[in-house]
Amino acid sequence: MNGFYWIASYPKSGNTWLRLFLEALLAGSLDINRLKKAGGHAAIRAEFDRLLDIPSSDLTDDEITNARPSLYQIEANTATQPLLRKAHDAWHLTPAGKPLFPPELTLGAVYLVRDPRDVAVSFAHHLTQDIDRIITRMNDPAAVMEPAKLRMQSHLPQRLLTWQQHVQSWLNAPIPVLLVKYEDLLAEPVNRFGEIADFLKLAATPEQIAAAVQAVKFDRLRDLEASNGFAEKPPDASRFFRRGIAGGWQDTLSTAQIERIEAHHADMMRRLGYVSLG
């Protein structure tokens, strides 16, 4: 049986960067607006409607979430190779009590994590919302991406939980998980991306890894977005590839904002080494 590798992360933690790397590696070329190999996403509304043959517009958020494990079952039944899927949902149970991402269909998950202080800054730009509101949202156990609010979104509602709970949920999931820190990807891209390719059992030579890393260097992605646009950029955001650095929060967040984030997520930040122990 074939199954899924979930490319999982809280939003704004390097997920797109990693998927573009995988695209460059698997496709041998990179058009950031037409991903052929690594464009899969676990919460595309049109895929849900097509494969379950029901308009999701007639369903409530809970009904949609309850049906998503069946969607993955149908996809796995017909897959001829392992499926890569981006996921921003926390690893959680549906309202009906079943794992949203069925372990029996899961080959593994690459979980990307990034310093929540940088996530807050990036998320605020992405959603064009103020940082304090984002910090509150990152600490809201009821947080959902793209819920059924004002208008229907191209993606299905995705439950995030708090930032700390999100990380915890994937690390505790009963599946093989490779934890990768965004900061480590930046510091040692060839080694870290190479480990991910190994985990995903992609047969790639060191030269191919190095070439794919080169293809998704931040400056290059920013230039591609500047000249062609980027389909994953939210309409109101000025650009998607903004800074691509670690520690940018230090010149952006106020002391009060830093203290709030560190208080909300103290345990997980310590565990991941984002703040010192003690």
């Binding site: 517009s57 369903l59 409530t60 958020d61 208008r151």
Partner: peptide
């Protein structure tokens, strides 16, 4: 028709007394 409140407002259509498509939906 099934319309969201922002579209009703934009087209200056009233939405008093209308039912939602499903309970919990905004259409």
């Amino acid at each position: 028709r099934k319309l969201t409140p922002d579209v009703l407002n934009a087209l200056q259509m009233p939405h008093e007394g209308l039912l939602t498509h499903r309970v919990g939906q905004v259409k």
